[in-house]
Design a protein around this nucleic acid. Structure first.
Lengths: 110, 110
DNA sequence: TCAATAGTTCAATAAATCTTGAACTAAGGA
DNA sequence: TCCTTAGTTCAAGATTTATTGAACTATTGA
């Protein structure tokens, strides 16, 4: 089983910005960036229910922001940093830098 | 009559990204940046109906991306570049650079 | 083979978003 | 004053988004 990813030429700026324009997904992206290693879905438990995290991860994948590799029963999720840096130079860096200082989403604040 | 703008500390990254994550609004922002001077609403006619442009401009203003000054029957719209550059360094530049190369929204493509 | 684990998919619902046309407000000019 | 111009607001409808729980698939380990 393999999950569908957009090709670089199918990634649009509007879709990327729209996908990043959500506190939960920003937190996921910030976590992926901070950790620097592939993470599985369970690592994002704090950001919502299993179902909901799956939904947000699908959004990020479909926008071209993350890569999801199937590994057994797990999914290994990484940022598509090279693709994004090529398509939209500086964008991911500035978003991540800004997200670092800002608040985490609701679920993790309680 | 004066339109409400968020204070700098009320501007959030998620709201800004979400507001930028729309082709029409990206085109408006790119136009504002390219022109460099205050523009009134009518200058965005090509991007949609009068009502619809008003809606998108309100979105941008409420997200803290634009400033709208009332001048007679006109509104003079500018980018809040200083505020955005302070809050989210490099973000606006990378978005605008990426938007420059990408497609214009539907209305202007016909 | 059986049970547990990781995650997805589906159906339902609530809420937000986008778009439109009609009606409205406010200012400016004749 | 009257008309025009610029833009907003409102109501309505269509579409999309976010969230949830239940059911499902697939892999792993006992």
């Amino acid at each position: 089983m393999n999950l569908p990813h957009p090709l670089p030429e199918q990634i649009t700026l509007a879709n990327v910005l729209s996908a990043l324009g959500d506190p939960t997904r920003l937190a996921i992206v910030a976590t992926l960036n901070r950790t620097g290693t592939p993470l599985n879905c369970g690592r994002f438990n704090e950001f919502g229910s299993k179902t909901n995290v799956s939904y947000h991860l699908a959004k990020l994948r479909e926008a071209g922001i993350t890569n999801t590799e199937v590994a057994g029963t797990s999914r290994l999720i990484t940022l598509r940093r090279a693709d994004l840096d090529t398509l939209f130079p500086g964008l991911l860096d500035s978003v991540i830098a800004a997200a670092r200082d800002s608040a985490a989403p609701a679920e993790s604040r309680k």
